[in-house]
Design a binder for these strands. Structure first.
Lengths: 347, 347
DNA sequence: CTGTTAGCGCATTCAA
DNA sequence: TTGAATGCGCTAACAG
């Protein structure tokens, strides 16, 4: 059966049909498709024309089978923040598409202590060429061990210990120092902090930034002004209540993420406190929530989409050449909005 | 090379190795793996044991190549709501996993009028067995034509015209009637509405529900109380301003989704209106935002995750048997929260 | 610079 | 109820 007949039958063109149409061997077609060298320009063009005419699309299954590579990246995540994840996923997807890799999603239940067997099974089944790890899972030693054992390259997004790994980081401590400087410059000296859970690197960095900023401004650290949170709205509500019930309550509160900051705004609303007149509030992450809430939230923006994309690009580099793959430092940006204002002494 | 040697080399077990270990032919192994009939129980068990011992995982590429099917579902979406999408995607993924299909994500830029060629290219490349369509794209005639032309089965989530299609629907009109009945029962008679954009079926249904509820309560429809929105926070802000600037402003506002309702709350805040004392507000969707805002939002919950899952299950049914595939009606649930309260006449 | 050949691991005829 | 042989469409040595 000729290529033309196959086409009339609704069958798809194969590499063989392209070769025939272009008057070359299939190996030459393969070279053109994979951008390999050693093809004359004129030949390359003939092949490309045949590809276009026949609407040839390579069969990915055949390619994977023959090439012993699946062209698959697995994105592993247990981060409960929908917005963060969507952005990361978008960036990862862009990078995968650009290199003709497919993306396999591997959501992990953050409450499941024994998630590893099922996850590893998924990774094995998919025959992944590489993995992208999202925090806080990006710091789970058991998972890292399992990946290393399989010699599977993995990119890390905001890992706690970036040494010897590749992916992306962001200077969260520095960002918080700037955010705090903004509050301090507004006259605040009693600044409360609602921390994140200790297993998150982010919680640690943001707390350190808080302390460093106080020290830089010669404001003594007061442990009573720091309460624990879980990065959830509800824990922000609880934390805010504890802070505002203090005998000498803070005039500003830095919540370690936007969800918790929204909780603080709620408590302020309940108590008839006007923000920022009676209380300044800021968060971290610049989720859509921070703009949709009233007053809108002063916070820090991470380039989340870019972080997903860049991490994946580094991973793809490392897949091509195991020696490569860098840890790329990304930029943050303060978002000054309505929820922070000058300190007014209570009268 | 024997199976044992291969294993020692770190190579993966193949179906051939399983057959050898179980003392049967590869065809028998294939039968067991694919749950085909005509295998003796004792034989089946021997095979299953060999699979477990060798940790055999079928090579999906080889299966696809030989079986002429990719086992791929494509999820096509242009809906701008992050939360909605994440939930839908989660449900779709669950259903895919359960049947060992892989999921390919196909995000579409809602502002790109000419998205079709690229999307179709992605679908063709992936050799999809079926497609899941999210609103509002689920109603795009050009896309539906392209799919039908390819004889590709597709499941529709909340399509405008469910006739002759399969997937999931939800009685949004009924939900809005109930929501409105709640407001009316609280004493409100001047109820404003901020509509969604006309290309969304949801916008139309929610507006119809609004009108029907008024009619049922013998409240005349006042076109001045209905303003256009875009399902965005900003358009909610604008709409609320228009409504509240009316000579005789509404005492309650039903925004067609939560984001716009958040915009209404913002305007209320700006103007010193207390919600719900001076103004009742409700939305639709029950996004996390509706709980994280103050006051929390009365709204309608859709089982979004389930909708994604069930739609995909129907698709998988239709892939197995083109005659099957139903339109499943899902349940909604009113969420009565803080943003609605009794009408108080202005004094 | 280009072509030939031999599998990749599985499903699927058809025969037993 | 089971098995042997053929090919899915492509990559990758190796030859020219």
């Amino acid at each position: 059966m000729t290529a033309k007949m196959r086409e009339a039958n609704g069958a798809r063109a194969r590499i063989e049909d392209v070769a025939e149409a272009a008057g070359v061997s299939i190996k030459t077609v393969s070279r053109v498709l994979n951008h390999e060298p050693n093809v004359r320009d004129e030949t390359r063009q003939r092949v490309e024309q045949a590809v276009a005419e026949l609407q040839y699309k390579p069969n990915l299954s055949a390619r994977s089978l023959a090439g012993q590579r699946a062209y698959v990246i697995v994105l592993v995540y247990d981060n409960p923040s929908r917005n963060y994840l969507t952005e990361i996923q978008g960036g990862v997807l862009e990078a995968c598409r650009a290199r003709h890799f497919s993306l396999v999603l591997a959501p992990v239940d953050p409450d499941d202590r024994n998630y590893l067997p099922e996850l590893v099974d998924l990774i094995d089944h998919s025959r992944a060429d590489g993995v992208v790890l999202v925090p806080p899972l990006t710091d789970d030693a058991r998972l890292l061990d399992a990946l290393q054992e399989r010699r599977l390259p993995f990119a890390s997004i905001s890992p706690r210990t970036p040494e010897g790994r590749f992916g992306v980081t962001l200077d969260e401590r520095g960002a918080v120092r700037e955010l705090m400087a903004h509050l301090i410059q507004l006259g605040h000296r009693r600044i409360g902090h609602i921390k994140g859970p200790p297993q998150h690197g982010a919680a640690t960095w943001r707390h350190s930034g808080y302390r460093e900023a106080l020290k830089l401004a010669d404001i003594p650290y007061d442990a009573a002004l720091v309460v624990k949170g879980e990065f959830t709205f509800e824990s922000g509500v609880e934390g805010a209540r504890r802070l505002l019930d203090l005998p000498d309550p803070p005039t500003a509160i830095f919540a370690a993420n936007d969800d918790m900051a929204a909780g603080v705004l709620r408590v302020a609303g309940e108590r008839g406190l006007s923000v920022p007149r009676d209380l300044s509030v800021c968060g971290f992450d610049d989720t859509p929530l921070s703009r949709q809430i009233f007053p809108s939230l002063t916070t820090v923006r991470q380039p989340t989409n870019d972080m997903g994309r860049v991490a994946t690009e580094e991973l793809l580099k490392a897949i091509r050449d195991p020696e490569s793959g860098d840890m790329v430092k990304m930029d943050y940006a303060l978002q000054l909005r309505e929820s922070t204002g000058p300190h007014r002494s209570r009268s």
